[in-house]
């Protein structure tokens, strides 16, 4: 399968990339890892007239803790998240998620920035970012701005990234205290989108009381979704089996899955409930 014809540029700097975005107008697209965009172009679901390949721009791939944040460069590959020591020791949610994203070859190219900027509720990082309370840095000719992940996803494949802008960094409040995180998705086979996925972040105080809870859901809503009632049910509680069951029930009630080849609506709600319960328990174990 061959995409419709398009032009191609490979800028060496962000400034050059912004200029190209302005020059080529609305039908230009940024090419990051390309493993969502190129398949869509081959199937002709997408037909940008110009691709701006940002792979040659230096300085967009890093994982570092700085100023109270875990900062991840937008062009950081999934494989780098999978193999990072900072990630595997303190932010296991990424290790869980990146192992489940597509397959090893795709993870060698797919980027975290692309996974988020694609704006697909079926992708895994959006729910993870919601659970982690991430901020996204968006850059353009007028400078950089920061957007909360809660305001980032506007609709089907649309995000807060405006024309002429590029997602450049993801910032996550650094793990502190008794902090635990976990992600799992049910998938029919390797490389499939989630039938349902749940991301959980938990912080507890020395007495075992939950001081913070973040829960994000994958592929059970038109846009990536935060399970707010579930979070509220956990914060201030001792995370007893009853508290956890209530949070799981709320997540299953509040999501909006559609019946499709991966399962009917009731099945998906059931999955959300089961996975939410398991991921809260796993995050809690890691927080201890």
């Amino acid at each position: 399968m061959i995409a419709e014809p398009f032009g191609y540029s490979s800028p060496q700097s962000l400034d050059e990339a912004y200029a190209l975005l302005h020059e080529h107008g609305d039908d230009a697209k940024i090419l990051a890892g390309g493993h969502s965009l190129i398949p869509m172009m081959k199937l002709r679901f997408a037909a940008p007239t110009h691709l701006i390949d940002i792979n040659k721009i230096p300085g967009l791939s890093y994982i570092k803790e700085e100023d109270g944040f875990l900062k991840i460069g937008a062009m950081t590959r999934e494989v780098d998240l999978e193999e990072s020591d900072i990630i595997s020791s303190r932010y296991q949610i990424f290790t869980d998620a990146s192992k489940l994203i597509a397959d090893p070859q795709v993870r060698n190219f797919g980027t975290i920035g692309g996974n988020i900027a694609h704006g697909d509720a079926a992708n895994d990082h959006p729910a993870v970012m919601m659970a982690l309370d991430a901020e996204v840095e968006i850059s353009g000719q007028d400078g950089k701005r920061s957007v909360s992940i809660n305001e980032f996803f506007h609709g089907f494949y649309t995000t807060a990234v405006q024309h002429g802008e590029i997602l450049t960094e993801i910032r996550i409040p650094a793990a502190s205290g008794h902090f635990g995180s976990a992600y799992h998705k049910a998938e029919r086979k390797v490389g499939d989108y989630a039938t349902a996925g749940v991301a959980v972040v938990i912080r507890v105080d020395d007495g075992g009381i939950c001081t913070k809870a973040g829960i994000g859901l994958t592929n059970v809503n038109a846009v990536p979704m935060r399970a707010i009632r579930s979070e509220e049910a956990l914060v201030g509680s001792m995370l007893s089996a009853g508290d956890i069951a209530k949070a799981a029930q709320y997540a299953a009630e509040d999501c909006n899955p559609s019946s499709d080849l991966r399962g009917d609506e009731d099945y998906k709600r059931h999955l959300v409930s089961v996975i939410t319960k398991r991921m809260i328990n796993r995050a809690l174990e890691r927080a201890k």
């Binding site: 399968m1 191609y8 490979s10 390309g34 493993h35 190129i38 398949p39 081959k42 199937l43 691709l51 390949d53 494989v79 597509a102 397959d103 090893p104 070859q105 795709v106 060698n108 190219f109 490389g191």
Partner: peptide
């Protein structure tokens, strides 16, 4: 469609699905 892996090659040492990468 980057599912089967028959087109896997190594690019700068990294395994890659060459049906999902542009020649350029």
């Amino acid at each position: 469609t980057s599912s089967c892996g028959a087109c896997t090659i190594l690019i700068d040492g990294k395994s890659a699905k060459s049906c999902t990468i542009l020649a350029v």
